[in-house]
Every structure is written in structure tokens, then in C-alpha cells.
């Protein structure tokens, strides 16, 4: 009799456990949140005379570039925008064409969102001036309001790639095209924090990026409510 009671209780408990865990699982997928990438530090700040611990996340440093329509693209002009960043150059024949094929899919997927844009940085600014970027964008059939192809000071582009986006961008004359660079796409939120890193040459990874853009937008929609 005792055994029977214990068994029943164990059974009931396991049913309860399964149901609860399932509920929790559903809950967490509903409020799915993207991680915040990069180093973080804890700062002590004073709020109303009280000391509080504040987490400071890695953010993209301020920048100032110019796009294919000669418009300036800076951390200020991108305020309030989610953006996808990558690094390329127009004469690249290795991974860039695949990256651009994939980025076109991202471009198509963000047409309906007015708070999402793409920023493609050239790592060959000596060759890729505004006219060349304009020509390149026109041939891809994309608009600068949605997809900025930016150029600027070579050092500041390389610096931003390496220290802000944590991506490789180097000149190397021994390489077939003269440069070494990463094929990654990065998802940046409205506070210029990195929320995802994707292989821009992989269709599967880019599918994940397209999905993550939706998740990030939901995060802001929930905050607004």
C-alpha cells in the first residue's frame, strides 16, 4: 500500500515536472532574446545618491563614412536603427560575390522594416571611391536608403573592423586579390551593441540572421509597449 502511494506520488510529480518544464520552455521561446556579444565590464554609478552596479557592454565606436550617394553615414545618422555590417571590396572575386549574393537576400527581407539597414564597408578605399560604389550598388539594383556602401579613411575603416567589430581586415599583397578579410555579417542593435555574428558565405547562417533580425525587432516592440 505504501509502495503504491509512493509510486503514485512519484508518477504525479513527474507529470507535474514535465508539464512545468514544457510551459517554461514555451515561455522562453516566446521571449527569445539575442545575446549581447563582446566584453562587458561592471561600473559603479550613483543614481539618486545610491550606488548601483551598471553593466557596460561593448559598443561600436563612433565613425564617420560616406556612402554611394555621397551622403554621410555616421553613428549619429544610424541612431534608432538596427543594422547589418560587413566588409568587402568591389574588385574582390573570392568570397565577396557570395557575400553579396547572400546580402541581397537580407536586403529583400528587410524591405518592410523601416528601422533596419545594411552597411557594407569597403576595405579598398583607394580604389573604391564614391563613383565606383555608386556604380556597384546600381548594378546590384539596390537603394542607398536601405543599403549603404561606405568608404572613408583607410585607417579608420581597418581600425573599426578590428577593434569594434572584431573582424579581420588587412592588406596583404601576397593574397590573390591583395587583401585578407572576414566574410562575416554582424547584427548591430540600436545601442550599437553586437547581437549576432554570421558567416556571410553560408546560406544557412544567413537564414539565421534573417530570423534574428525579427527577434531583435520584437525586443524593441515589447519595450515600446
Amino acid at each position: 500500500m505504501n509502495d503504491f502511494l509512493i509510486n503514485t506520488m512519484a508518477y504525479r510529480f513527474s507529470v507535474w515536472l514535465v508539464v512545468t518544464l514544457n510551459l517554461l520552455a514555451c515561455q522562453s521561446s516566446k521571449n527569445e532574446k539575442l545575446p549581447i556579444l563582446g566584453e562587458r565590464k561592471l561600473d559603479v554609478v550613483e543614481v539618486n545618491g545610491k550606488k548601483q552596479i551598471d553593466t557596460v557592454y561593448h559598443t561600436i565606436a563612433p565613425f564617420s563614412f560616406i556612402d554611394q550617394d555621397s551622403q554621410s553615414v555616421t553613428h549619429r545618422t544610424l541612431t534608432g536603427k538596427i543594422y547589418v555590417a560587413d566588409f568587402f571590396f568591389t574588385s574582390c572575386r573570392t568570397i565577396c560575390p557570395i557575400m553579396k549574393t547572400q546580402m541581397l537576400r537580407v536586403y529583400d527581407s528587410i524591405q518592410k522594416y523601416d528601422d533596419v539597414v545594411i552597411v557594407s564597408h569597403t576595405i579598398d578605399p583607394e580604389h573604391d571611391d564614391v563613383a565606383r560604389l555608386h556604380d556597384f550598388a546600381a548594378k546590384l539594383g539596390v537603394k542607398s536608403s536601405k543599403w549603404h556602401f561606405v568608404t572613408g579613411e583607410k585607417d579608420s575603416i581597418y581600425n573599426l573592423a578590428q577593434t569594434s567589430y572584431f573582424l579581420t581586415a588587412l592588406e596583404d599583397k601576397s593574397e590573390p586579390d591583395g587583401f585578407i578579410h572576414s566574410g562575416a555579417f554582424l547584427l548591430i542593435d540600436k545601442k550599437r551593441r553586437i547581437r549576432g555574428k554570421y558567416d556571410g558565405t553560408s546560406e544557412e547562417d544567413v537564414n539565421r540572421l534573417i530570423k534574428d533580425i525579427g527577434i531583435l525587432r520584437k525586443e524593441y516592440a515589447q519595450k515600446a509597449n
Binding site: R93, T94, I95, P97, I98, K100, T101, L104, F136, A138, K139, L140, G141
Partner: peptide
């Protein structure tokens, strides 16, 4: 195929 694409379609008005 990087530029001309695996299915030979090219890419927009670029390739």
C-alpha cells in the same frame, strides 16, 4: 561560380 553562380544565372547587372 562565386560570381557567375552555381546555376549560371550571374548576379543582377554585375556578373
Amino acid at each position: 561560380s562565386n560570381c557567375h553562380q552555381p546555376n549560371g544565372s550571374g548576379l543582377k547587372n554585375l556578373y
